[in-house]
């Protein structure tokens, strides 16, 4: 019976993995996340502003305020889910036995 030997990564192979994620593109996700944070923050501020305007009587349509609130909520929940998934993956890696 032929038992294959355990193959370690050939020397220099880690270099191949390292080049998969270029240093320049490593910031892509961070950049995207930063952008999303800014966007969600803008939405929350916008909804806040609309609520303030509604209480001051400067808004003529209540549904615009409610829709802005809903949009802010959905955007925030989307971001929360992304963060949850990210942390989940990170903790999964931490739990790996080396």
């Amino acid at each position: 019976m032929n038992v294959p030997s355990v193959d370690f990564l050939p020397l220099g192979a880690e270099g191949a993995y390292a080049t998969k994620s270029k240093p320049g593109s490593a910031g892509d996700f961070a950049h995207w996340l930063d952008q999303e944070f800014t966007e969600v923050n803008d939405k929350l501020n916008q909804a806040d502003d609309l609520v303030r305007k509604l209480t001051l009587g400067e808004v003529d349509n209540v549904h615009h305020v409610m829709i802005a609130l809903d949009q802010a909520r959905i955007s925030f929940q989307l971001l929360t889910q992304v963060r949850n998934k990210l942390l989940e993956g990170y903790q999964e890696i931490l739990r790996m036995s080396v």
Partner: peptide, 22 residues
């Protein structure tokens, strides 16, 4: 119109539950 919007909102929120344990 409110019902249509609520349906859209429910769908979006349901999509966020995909693959999660929340």
């Amino acid at each position: 119109n409110v019902a249509a919007l609520n349906a859209a909102k429910t769908m979006a929120l349901k999509a966020l539950e995909l693959g999660g344990n929340t």
